[in-house]
Design a binder for these strands. Sequence first.
DNA 1: AGGCTCCACGTTTTT
DNA 2: CGTGGAGCCT
Length: 818
Amino acid sequence: MNTDWIENLNPPQQRAVTHHTGPLLVLAGAGSGKTRVLTHRVAYLIDHFDTPPEAIVAVTFTNRAAAEMRHRVDALLDDKKAASRVVISTFHSLGARLLRRFAPRARLSWNFSIYDDSDSRRLIGALLESQGLEKDRASIRHHQNYIDSQKNRALTPNQALEQAFDGRAEEDAQFYELYQKALREADAVDFGDLIMGPVNLFRQSPELALHLSESWQFLMVDEFQDTNPAQYELLDHLTTAHDNLAVVGDDDQAIYGWRGADPTHILGFEDAFRSANIVKLEQNYRSTAVILDAANDVIAHNSHRHSKRLWTDRPDGDPIVVFSGADDREEAGYVAETIFDLLRRGTDAEDIAIFYRTNAQGRLFEEQMRQWGVAYRIVGGLSFYAREEIKDLLAYLRAALNPSDDVATARVINTPRRGVGKSTIEKLRRATAVDGVFNLQEAALLANDNGPGEPPQSDLFTARPLPSGPDQVEAIDDIRSLRGVSRRGLTEFQTILEATREDLLHFDSLTPVMERLMERTAYADHVQHSDPERADDRLRNIGELVNAIEEFELDPGTPALIDAVKKLMPDDADDPLTTSEAAIHLRAFLDRSALVQSTDTNDDTSAVTLMTIHGSKGLEFDHVFLVGMEEDTFPNLRNPNDPEELAEERRLAYVAITRARNQLYISNARRRRTYGQFRNTEPSRFLLHIDSKRLLVDPRSTSAEIDYAARTKHSSSGRSSTKSPSWSFDQSSQQNDDFNQAPPDWDQSYDADVAALLEPPPVDTAHEKLVGLTVSHTKFGVGEVLSASGSGDNPLLIINFPAVGEQSVYRKFLKILG
DNA sequence: AGGCTCCACGTTTTT
DNA sequence: CGTGGAGCCT
């Protein structure tokens, strides 16, 4: 037992780490070492208090945070085996695990599916259709939001109905009930159920919660400020037998109000747990003083905060660099160019990040990064597992493993096309309404029967006689009388599923199952044929899926995961499709892919990170580019008059700023394209809140100096009127894309060496010497000079830019790279 | 059944 | 601007 590292913690950190039993609230400011406290406490519980590792449960919100914590606990403990026994999990994975463990009690099979947002949407659409209701996008979104918010608030359909205050709310609650019933029939749960499902279990069987909490003796929760009522209730159940609940959070970083997070959980923790030990971590180890001060400038405008004073003993550091582009494209070009320069100066791309408010903003930066040849990685956005081709192939596997999963079945019953069109699917759906026909796959089996009047051929339906009411008979006969392509298509589909099930029984690994599925479905041909332009991309994605499966099976952590899955399996499981090795692999892989946002960056190449601010929580980077700092983009207010919404946006700005360790760049654009239309902008009030003495306006900001003098002075009242003239230039001014002409010493941190690089090379009248050189341009990226013409120090060059083709550009708009 | 064209609509933020 | 659904035509 070696706990010398205790010495390296500051006194409040030590108090938190050495806390043993009873409730603990750690109010941890940004960068104050909260992950450090959590991981060290895990180690201390094990090493000092001899706690069995499996009695410790640490819960996070994101897979990323869970992985980070796992990694750091691993590093702290000498006994690596012990480290892997600690339960470190996201709320949702923990919920999935509990639901699998107690599936029968939740009226689910062990192989239940997890529906992601798009699966839920399809289910809602199908239900609206079956109800003869409007099924436009708005309506689907409305129901999805409603159901999700009820689940976030830990309300069952019945409770929602009781609380309904008008007819509309009653209808919504009734639809929620219908949806839950459909989910159960599909042997599936959605994301909300991953929390609500276990909560319901514990409500019905408190002894279950008691039992679990006896073995899970120590609970720790990261980012506690973002817990919603359902998660809070889950924690409550899990602490039935004790009150060893340690929570870590920062009310200034509460950014998930829209997802039902309730700040009273953290603000009222000391009331809920009277004996709570409260520790405040107020020393920031991450950022320079300038960055921290800027963050405080912004967050100071919020009221209702836990009292807390974040400080640092780091030096001031460089001022925050501000750039205003003529438009959003120029802004992106500036960021890409600046990053390009940073990389040339030897900065590791891993230490650089671009944060934006909404995913859609990422596209422009992605484009520019590509033009400048900068390696980048987009986190979030369209998840790998949300791609059409990936969802299709996984749907086959889901449908094979869980025949009740109608969303998966419907997704691929006619993909690739095999003649099962809309009307056939509609017939199948109607047949599932017949008692004794439990799902689409069973309905499809009826097509193999001989026809009206004949007895059913399928064992399934001789063992389970179907009703004989006229409507039901008609629905069944509709399918029995299918002929031609539709019937052949259904047979083909069944054959594929059956063969896949056979494969799952006979292989020990998932990889050959996947390969054979690809062959049977001829999915690659389908991609090639249906979408020739993007076929290469999509085929590469499929390749990545195959790799992901292979890597998953080869991953040293997987055997432990598989073991864990096996432990969750009911003892009396005898269905071969449940107990076979490949099926168990599949179960584990599907769970992971449902709960993981993207292929967890296996690529070890160094790359610049692009992500939303929400995605950045808990992370830190040397260089942070906070972009799109304009009103209406950030803050992005749905309801401009809601002070709470504005406060949350402000906390979001606080989170973004405090991610930066050494250098923060803030940028915006005077015009931004939305829906293809240019729109004039104003600088973000958050930018204006930062004391201008901390800012250095980049001289390349074409005429875009922000008029700080024009700022209103009475903004500390908490209600700032920021309708003052914001830009000190004419909004109609033309875009000026030659900011390369700006003096190379725009950034004081540039050393002479770098300045020389940026200095235009000596005038060379023999322009031919330029031919063949590599140059870079703000808009077009990097290219090669093909020819030169003209005279003086600014010849016209023809340049081949890989990104955009040949362009004629004046010398002075270019930077010579060599 | 399937493919095509046209048009309406949208953007928070994530597990 | 881009997507995706509805509706029309083959």
